[in-house]
Design a binder for these strands. Structure first.
Lengths: 358, 358
DNA sequence: CAACTGCGAAAAATCGATTTACCGTTTGGA
DNA sequence: TCCAAACGGTAAATCGATTTTTCGCAGTTG
């Protein structure tokens, strides 16, 4: 803190008015760009603004309007690259339109999600971008509906009867993963996920299963899911492998699952892709620098963010009409963690792929 | 958007007042817990609040006070685990005190940092937690000083003559890394970093160098830094290895450097820890599930956050006195990426460590 | 019986903007 | 010549709270 009290009160619009010798209303008009002000008066206002270093107080300016120039963003967490990028994008887009983004983390709790939403309602935000913890049918969306709030649902949603939704096309991406794995000859595949996020996880699972079975009706697909946290998932996975199950590939429906799978592999001394292949939903920066690089589904963060903001502002500006449900295409990055079953030396040395020196 | 217009105007304090048959001032007092209100009137106010579902408008409530119950947080980015966790922590701590946290990303730009700060000043935030892009001497801190803002500087800072600072004890942690590496017998170590973040990077470098030389005066320490982005760092590193330099260990002073080092290792087909050892500043979730697990310095995020908030609110409440500079201790996690030089099979197979099955 | 003391509550001022209503002057057309 | 519209601007209302001031009514005191 600057302990020498440079705390001079900030100049208000009235200070500018008296310095310029006009009324506050005139100052307001000049700054709003109204043209029915005499040029000399406008100039004096600009001079006074300059001299005093005046800046509009956005909160005071918002007091009168029903919707303030604030957009709320509620994410399940901030720690992952995906939501971090999402917040960064949303912030920039809101800013471009002269709005401030207020982001909050629901910390994967539906109760907290609703509380945050209530607080944002108190703030009279113009709109909310909600990435629900679970899906579009949670208490938060119900609250928004009940209070006539404007909002867009993203990520863990499919479609809704009240709000526009934007999410990655999980089903299509999963189908592509299925094509890759089955195409490489995998016929026993384990899929892992967390079931709470019903909306997307189910889409991913079904998209994968349908495509895999279409390509090879005799493919065996095992599924392990846990309800809330990853630890039960880890336990189930450990138990599954402990029973002697040996799928040739694992498809993780979410980032945390990919981490769990990797740590279980290393616990057992299995190596990708020789002992088992791995593909995960959600990409991360580290996945391309590890040994092996991890194949992943990349979500179109920027497109989801910009599409969500477009839809949101359309509604903020009063657009009516039935809600739309958007699915943005993903990119599947094939990397070294995927191989053909039984092609590499099994559980032994010499497993490294040595890329040529440039 | 709920297209059936459930947009009923929210009840104001006057609605509550008229429903309760008292004045708005009385309602305000009751809700503020003033005791000089007749119990029966207080009860009628509570009833009206309940019936109408009234909640205070925090913005209107803040209008009269000079400092609003808002805390600003400015981070260089949101994409990394470190800053993601930091924002999550800060948000919770602000909330506990009845404040709203407004977070913004400077996107590693000092110009943007200052703009955001100006906007937060417009908002009349009570205080700011600033994680500067570079160090405590940037334009943002100067702006805060010039405008008498209350704030705390964190992370990439050492100490300041105007603001309290809180950061990880980079020097001590680096010294411990030096003890580990030199203790394992490494005598040619490469340190990589980005020089722009002068404050912490220099502390880390000097802490490391001093300790390493104290333990082994003949140790060779090479340093590669780049100015702004990681790509020049990657180029320099590539060039360095290309010249035939073969340190036995690399210490990266920041997370992005760790990624660059890893990707260069894999480009050349080198393997940790047999071909080269690696330690990085900043831990990440994935580092313990890769092969090998990456040794890292863990920053005490929670402690930094809570200490910063404590100091900040002390100043917000008017505490005077000279600024304090806090250093919070780090934890160094030794993992498989660090070995003794020349102990493993060099550049060959069989490099995996197989942990026993439980 | 007038003046004084308290108490509880209402009225009014305040915060910093925007917006509406209104008021003189010009200017224009009929 | 006279009324009306256009112009340029100001005072006041407004937004939703908090805080200060005032007020009315009891009950005491001199």
């Amino acid at each position: 803190m600057a302990h020498q009290g440079a705390q001079q009160r900030r100049p208000s619009i009235h200070d500018v008015a008296s310095h310029a010798g006009v009324s506050a209303a005139t100052v307001s008009k000049v700054l709003a760009g109204v043209t029915t002000v005499r040029p000399e008066n406008a100039q004096r206002v600009f001079d006074a603004v300059e001299r005093l270093g005046y800046r509009v107080d956005p909160l005071a300016s918002d007091m009168r309007r029903a919707k303030r120039r604030i957009i709320g963003a509620i994410m399940p967490e901030f720690e992952s690259e995906f939501f971090g990028q999402m917040v960064t994008e949303l912030e920039g887009l809101a800013e471009q339109r002269g709005y401030t983004l207020v982001a909050a983390s629901s910390r994967e709790s539906e109760a907290r999600e609703k509380e945050i939403l209530a607080r944002m309602h108190d703030w009279r935000v113009a709109g909310v971008v909600l990435a629900p913890v679970r899906n579009e049918h949670g208490p938060a969306a119900a609250f928004m509906k009940a209070n006539g709030m404007t909002g867009v649902l993203i990520d863990r949603v499919l479609s809704d009867d009240a709000f526009d939704t934007v999410s990655a096309d999980s089903a299509a991406a999963s189908a592509e993963v299925a094509r890759m794995l089955v195409g490489k000859g995998h016929s026993h595949i384990l899929v892992i996920g967390l079931a709470e996020q019903a909306a997307t996880v189910r889409a991913r699972l079904e998209g994968f299963r349908a495509q895999a079975l279409a390509l090879n009706p005799s493919v065996r697909i095992d599924v392990i899911t846990a309800e809330v946290s990853v630890e039960p998932l880890r336990a189930s996975l450990r138990d599954y492998f402990g029973r002697g199950e040996r799928p040739t590939a694992v498809y993780s429906l979410l980032l945390k699952g990919t981490l769990v799978a990797l740590s279980e592999f290393r616990r057992r001394g299995w190596h990708c892709p020789n002992d088992i292949s791995l593909v995960g939903f959600d990409d991360a920066e580290w996945m391309q620098v590890t040994w092996p690089a991890i194949a992943a589904v990349v979500q179109p963060v920027r497109r989801i963010a910009s599409e969500a903001m477009n839809l949101l502002f359309r509604r903020v500006e009063g657009a009516a009409g039935p809600p739309t449900a958007r699915l943005e295409p993903c990119q599947v990055l094939m990397r070294e963690s995927v191989g053909s079953p039984g092609s590499g030396p099994h559980s032994g040395g010499g497993d490294r792929q040595q890329p040529p020196l440039s």
